[in-house]
Nucleic acid binder design. Structure first.
Lengths: 352, 352
DNA sequence: CTGAAAGCGCTTACAG
DNA sequence: CTGAAAGCGCTTACAG
């Protein structure tokens, strides 16, 4: 009985296939890996028998032996939000094409990320891609010094041999200012996120600075969560302002708030007659009939392509201890910025 | 030189830590695993030294030795769509809580899924969760017979020891029919998806059958992709109908089409005065001011909880060759259905 | 409480 | 072209 049980628990190995095919265990390894010489007929016979038995090489054992697991760690969070689901589908697709497998580390909150980054190390992955939280410099060093790649999306990577791409939020904010002030006067309002939010802060700063340069004034309304609900509350506050004091140039640091803002004003005020409005993200819903929101599209595909370039470069240099300095790296700047693309629609008067 | 290179490539192992701590390699293993006796001081010393060196146990090696990788395969696709991103964030969170790691298999198309399911096997995961494509019976058998769990979301799992939860689409369709015919007469229209689409077909069938029972008639408009754009095209077709022949009871098998339908009619016809409309999915945007769409919410959390129950049950029985028959299994029915929840809003006259 | 040794399931020189 | 053997980095009885 005990014997039976242990037998049934033991998993099938290449040895079982070898026995069934009447060859050495080494040959069944060669049949599957394609490395080393093997007679075509032998190979086919082994493959057929393995198929019949339902055996495939154990990827874990292979990875251990070769010292190289075809794995990449991906750190993410809040998939049901914003841009992350979009980026992830590009990213996962790409990783698939590299014939690597994504091992997902899902952060409950941004504070979780550092712990996950550490956990990552146990798995001896080729590298890690971070789309959430903050990359601590010492953590970055720990990863890079093992020869793994480290790519950060929309956040600093904090290491000279790591890689970081981000939307050029500062420039987006500045562009919004230029466009809005031209058509809606010098009195501006920013619907912004938390002070600590990296992307939103930069968009706000880009906008505010550009407004100042043009001799305008901008007030900033911070919102804890950048939701449609928050946008509605801003609308209420906007209506509370004496009609003459309502800024006509409104920039929202994301689309969700902009859409909520429009809904909160619906039936009373509308763009672009009463004010001009620009958002950020180009959500699918921003193009819908009741909104037609002018907004910025994040260059997600471009950013993913940049990461692809970095990773490919890293793979080619794999094994060298000091990988070539990244050719894309701009001197003195740790982050590659990609320009957001303005999508002109009906909440501004400007035409494409 | 060659010597130097190979040395720098060799990764750090428990042996290095052992050497530095002046103990046997077995002890450093015990320090980390918590298994076997070890003096607390020894343990702390080892942990400190490992931390300093920056070493952590190799998860691949551990998994190989113990014959149990803390991995679960998740098959998914089109993350930027529908419900999948939502489900995935629940799922990934849960998997994290099990202290397992999700290995993602991203299907380019549904036809890809069978191949991915096979690839899954190499990784010797605890089990696999499928949220895309079709599970072939023989593939299901291959997975289950290895002792892995197999859970399918919104699709059949095709194996008595596997598990399948789905939204009760048939019931949803029937509920929609009851509600719509009561307030909008017996002439009905279904905005449906492809004939082969599992969920959409069942919603349609549930609706059509219930309409027939009530002595009404329903016409069905199939759409290749269930997008807002398709909904707009349906609106155009609807307007092309002579005013007297326009069905007043409209059921859309997803929200995206319903929203597009409303937008296509905007300014000409609106619900619930000219017709009544019910969607399916309860997208965030369905609650927005210009829509206020009555719709069904998929019981995603409940479905994930069911999967959790099945997996926990499986884990407890791990090692047994024939896992206990699932207690949830309803005789003769391979799928556990969870009722969708109606969300009454303003495109119907009915009040909650 | 600690260590030496066997073994997990493979891959890969090395002989033949 | 094929096989025997060493070894990947750990864990876990088994002795001491």
């Amino acid at each position: 009985m005990v014997f039976d049980k242990s037998r049934s628990l033991r998993s099938i190995t290449s040895r079982d296939v070898a026995k069934a095919a009447n060859v050495s265990q080494a040959l069944v390894s060669r049949a599957f890996s394609g490395n080393g010489r093997i007679a075509p007929e032998t190979r086919n016979r082994i493959l057929a028998i393995a198929e019949e038995i339902g055996w495939q090489p154990n990827a874990l054992a292979r990875s251990m032996v070769t010292g190289d697991a075809p794995l990449v760690a991906v750190i993410t969070t809040r998939l049901h939000f914003d841009w992350r689901a979009q980026v992830l589908s590009h990213l996962l697709n790409t990783i698939q094409q590299w014939h690597l497998k994504p091992l997902l580390f899902y952060a409950e909150s941004d504070d979780d990320v550092d712990r996950l980054l550490e956990e990552t190390l146990s798995w001896r992955t080729r590298g890690v891609i971070v789309t959430a939280g903050i990359v601590q410099p010492r953590r970055a060093k720990a990863i890079v010094s093992r020869g793994q790649f480290l790519a950060a999306l929309n956040r600093p990577a904090h290491h000279p041999n790591a890689f970081s791409v981000a939307t050029d939020n500062l420039q987006g904010g500045a562009m919004a200012a230029a466009l809005l002030l031209d058509e809606a006067g010098r009195d501006a309002l920013v619907l912004s996120g938390r002070q600590g939010d990296w992307a939103s802060s930069l968009r706000t700063k880009g906008f505010v600075d550009a407004v100042a340069v043009r001799g305008g004034t901008a007030r900033v309304w911070h919102n804890e969560t950048m939701s449609t609900e928050a946008g509605k509350q801003c609308a209420a506050a906007y209506l509370d302002l004496p009609a003459g004091e309502r800024p006509k140039a409104v920039f929202s640091t994301n689309d969700a708030m902009a859409l909520g803002f429009m809904d909160g004003l619906r039936g009373q005020l509308s763009a672009p007659s009463d004010f001009s409005l620009i958002g950020f993200d180009n959500l699918p819903s921003s193009s819908w009939t009741p909104y037609e929101l002018t907004t910025f599209e994040q260059p997600l595909e471009e950013m993913v392509l940049r990461i692809v370039g970095y990773v490919n470069n890293h793979q080619q240099n794999a094994g060298r201890n000091f990988p070539a300095h990244n050719p894309e790296r701009v001197a003195g700047d740790e982050i590659i910025y990609c320009a957001p693309k303005i999508v002109l629609r009906s909440t501004t008067k400007a035409k494409q």
